[in-house]
């Protein structure tokens, strides 16, 4: 292929990316638009007279929500890894009888629609008295990630060279020791992938937040935005500014850890 032709593709590619990312641009544009320009017709295509009012509203009103989301995200990551990593090690290397059935159960588990999980969890939580609590929300959010985490980690741990584990055994390391000192450190990349996606999903969760934590004192940012819209709030710059801030983890993820993201997606991450 000749060089000019390749540059043509770059130009077309830029145009396509522009079209695809237009909604993202529009969100940013609106977040800087003044209230009085909000219903202008036609709308301004770029913030000619920008304002930070929207972002001021975020700082005034949304910081607690952001803090809650951060906490829920970190808690979900920790709990997911604690449950998934030992399971993956066992399924990949120790391979007990019945392991296949468990893997199958995990595949099925991740196909269950969230709304159904939410209803079942609601009934369960009501009896346990953990509705509208953060631990309850964290546990619910882990159901978004645990099957994925086990699958990714199992695939990765299966690929660890047998010699490495054998050497550990010769040196007298037991199963637990091998897992903790060899398998976990070696699986760092897969663990990072899992942690990043888990955080993102917990951060983005709306369905569990709205069903299990809608009356809670501490609510995540997705509910913060939802209340904004629901209040018939006409301050779309504030709504969109919150949306921009809520998008920061996703963007950071893509910038900092792009190769992990692509690995996670091709490992079959599906968003619905």
């Amino acid at each position: 292929m000749t060089t000019p032709r390749r540059w043509w593709k770059t130009i077309i590619g830029l145009a396509l990316t522009g079209v695809m990312l237009f909604p993202v641009y529009w969100m940013i544009n609106v977040s800087f638009t003044r209230d009085r320009d909000m219903r202008k017709s036609p709308p301004s295509w770029f913030p000619a007279d920008p304002t930070l009012d929207g972002y001021r509203a975020v700082i005034d009103q949304q910081l607690p929500y952001l803090g809650t989301s951060l906490l829920v995200g970190l808690g979900t990551v920790a709990l997911t890894l604690v449950i998934a990593a030992p399971a993956a090690y066992s399924l990949a290397r120790l391979r007990p009888r019945g392991g296949t059935a468990l893997s199958f159960a995990l595949l099925i588990a991740q196909m269950i629609p969230g709304i159904i999980m939410a209803m079942g969890l609601y009934a369960t939580y009501l009896n346990l008295g953990v509705l509208n609590t953060l631990p309850g929300l964290i546990v619910a959010d882990t159901t978004l990630a645990v099957p994925f985490a086990v699958l990714i980690l199992t695939t990765f741990m299966t690929g660890i060279p047998r010699e490495l584990l054998h050497a550990a055994r010769v040196d007298g390391a037991g199963t637990v020791r091998t897992f903790w000192s060899i398998v976990l450190p070696v699986s760092r990349n897969a663990t990072v992938t899992v942690a990043l996606f888990t955080f993102l999903w917990a951060w983005s969760d709306f369905i569990y937040a709205s069903t299990l934590d809608s009356g809670g004192d501490h609510q995540p940012i997705t509910l913060g935005i939802y209340h904004y819209i629901g209040n018939n709030n006409q301050q779309w710059n504030a709504i969109m500014a919150t949306a921009v801030v809520a998008s920061i983890p996703a963007t950071a993820l893509l910038v900092v850890a792009q190769r992990y993201v692509t690995a996670g997606v091709t490992a079959g991450a599906v968003k619905d």
Binding site: S204, F206, I225, L253, V265
Partner: peptide, 11 residues
Amino acid sequence: FLVPWLLPLIV
């Protein structure tokens, strides 16, 4: 191109 897929759905 991955950005739309990574954004929170509420956004």
